[in-house]
Each structure stands twice: as structure tokens, then as C-alpha cells.
Amino acid sequence: MEELISLLGHRVRLVDLTHRLGPSPSEPVPPWLEAQTHEEGAEVWEGMFGIPRGALPGGRGFAGEMLHRLSTHAGTHVDAPWHYAPTAGGAPAATIDRVPLSWCVGDLVVVDVSDLPTGHLIGRDEVVERLAGIAPDLQAGAVVAFYTGAERLWGDEKFWETGCGLGREAVLALLERGVRTIGTDAWSLDRPYPLIGAEWQQRRDPAALWPAHFAGIEQPYLQIEKLANLTAVPAIGATILAFPIKVECGSGAWTRAVALVAEPGER
């Protein structure tokens, strides 16, 4: 979805970076959405207040939804430092309701790594090299998002098995430059979980277990996972807004991530 609006005197294009939140084969534990129809909404008011259907416009009440078995990590969402561990940088890790809002907005830098094979572990040198060709003057506070190509399989059960992921050193290289939020179009900023699980059975190497997530024990940072439409925004020049829902003491929360792209002549 794209729209044009005027913002602070500038024309910008809005690019929706968010997947719909609902049942999907791409979610190993899919949400269950129970819809309440307008007719059922009328029954609610009659049961609660004795208001007959005939008193309502068209005999209908309000539509609604109940979401059951809904993980805070379903759909496009933000991971809080608390998700990775109880401490971050030697201090108590922030839950999603306590993360700085300033970390959820910033200059968006999109790094295309879709040429790398599924399961590839992105290292420090690869991140530094690719950023040098896109944003050599990367500013502190920028949000760096990796396009792995996994998004193309959204809606397919193979989605969570697809894409490359960041290693510990790659994450720390970004944090050292003042990045506080890292995104991906894949199911996780780490390599696919089924691959990590299979490798554990063979190698039993603790260092290979979710190195991107556990890098957050050393320095706090946010992840935005399952981003959409990263190919619809330029590598640099856009602004991202990805404010999470304020789930009390949550390890993560859903977001309606949006990119603001300046129209030609507006930068």
C-alpha cells in the first residue's frame, strides 16, 4: 500500500512495511482470529442492555474481533532487549513498554542481501563492505534493515525456513556505529530456526545458537522482524516509523511499520 501525503510542508510517499496480522502458513504458531459479525454485535447489546435489534441501524451492532493464541512475535513486530535476556549491557533489559521511542524512528538504510543463500551467516566484514557502498556516512540512530528475499515466500510454510541471518560480530559492528534498531524481511534476524536446530544436532556448538539475538546481551538494541515491501523503498533516503504496541512488560509487540519516502525535489 502506498499513499501520498503532505508532512511538515513536504510531499512524501507512505510505504506500508507491515504484513497483515492473522492466520498464515508462514507462522509456526498461527494466530487464531475470531470475527464478530454486525448481527452478533446486535446480540451483545440486546444481552447487555436489552436494546432490541430494531433500535439499531439496519438491525446491526458493531463488528469486532477476538484474537486468540496471539504471540507478541507474530506478524511484523519489534523485539525488545528483554526478549534476548534479562540483562543488556550489564543493566536490566528493557521490556517493550519501556524502550525509547527514539529507537523506533530514524533514517532507513536498506541492505539487499538477497544474493546470499538461505542459511548464510553474515559476518562483520560483509556488513561493513555493503554499508560502505550504500551509506558510508551512516549516522547514529539510523535503522538498518536487511532484505533477504524471504518476503517473497510470505504466506507459504517455507517462509520461516528461508533467508540469511546476522552473526554476533555483524550486529555489534552496527551497534558500534550508533544503530539501535535492526530489521529484516525474514522470520528472524538470525538464520532460520530449523537450520539452527539441525546444526545443533550435528555440532553442539553453543556459539552458533541465535548469535544475533544474544548479541543483545552485550548491548541493548531492537529488532524489527518480518518487514514487508523493503524493495519499494530506496536504499537510503527514507524514514521509518515502527512504534510498537505498549504491551505491559512484553518481550515484543506488533507494529505498523511505515516508510516515509520524499517525493522528487522534496529532499
Results as ranks from 00 to 15, higher is better:
1 M>W: 10
5 I>Y: 12
7 L>S: 11
9 G>A: 05
12 V>H: 00
12 V>F: 08
15 V>L: 09
17 L>A: 08
18 T>F: 03
25 P>L: 07
29 V>Y: 15
30 P>C: 09
30 P>S: 06
33 L>N: 05
36 Q>R: 14
37 T>E: 04
39 E>V: 13
41 G>M: 06
41 G>S: 01
43 E>Q: 11
43 E>S: 12
44 V>E: 10
46 E>G: 10
46 E>F: 04
48 M>R: 13
50 G>N: 10
53 R>D: 09
53 R>V: 09
54 G>K: 11
56 L>T: 04
58 G>Y: 12
59 G>M: 05
61 G>T: 11
61 G>F: 04
65 E>G: 14
65 E>M: 15
66 M>S: 14
67 L>G: 13
68 H>Y: 08
69 R>W: 11
71 S>Y: 11
72 T>L: 12
72 T>E: 10
75 G>A: 10
80 A>D: 02
80 A>I: 08
85 A>G: 15
94 A>W: 10
97 D>T: 09
101 L>D: 12
108 L>I: 02
110 V>R: 00
112 D>G: 00
114 S>Y: 00
114 S>Q: 02
116 L>E: 04
122 I>T: 08
127 V>S: 00
127 V>P: 00
128 V>S: 02
130 R>T: 06
130 R>W: 02
132 A>S: 15
133 G>H: 06
133 G>E: 07
141 G>S: 07
145 A>G: 02
145 A>T: 05
147 Y>K: 14
149 G>N: 05
153 L>Y: 13
154 W>D: 01
155 G>C: 08
157 E>V: 09
159 F>A: 05
161 E>R: 11
165 G>N: 01
166 L>M: 03
168 R>L: 04
169 E>F: 07
171 V>H: 00
172 L>I: 06
177 R>D: 04
184 T>M: 01
184 T>F: 02
184 T>A: 01
189 L>R: 07
193 Y>V: 14
197 G>Q: 13
199 E>F: 09
207 A>P: 06
215 A>F: 07
216 G>A: 04
218 E>R: 04
219 Q>V: 14
223 Q>M: 09
224 I>K: 05
225 E>P: 06
226 K>F: 03
231 T>D: 12
234 P>R: 01
234 P>G: 09
237 G>N: 02
239 T>Q: 14
240 I>E: 03
241 L>K: 12
244 P>G: 06
247 V>C: 15
247 V>N: 13
248 E>G: 14
249 C>P: 13
252 G>K: 02
260 L>T: 00
264 P>D: 00
264 P>G: 03
265 G>T: 04
266 E>W: 05
266 E>I: 07
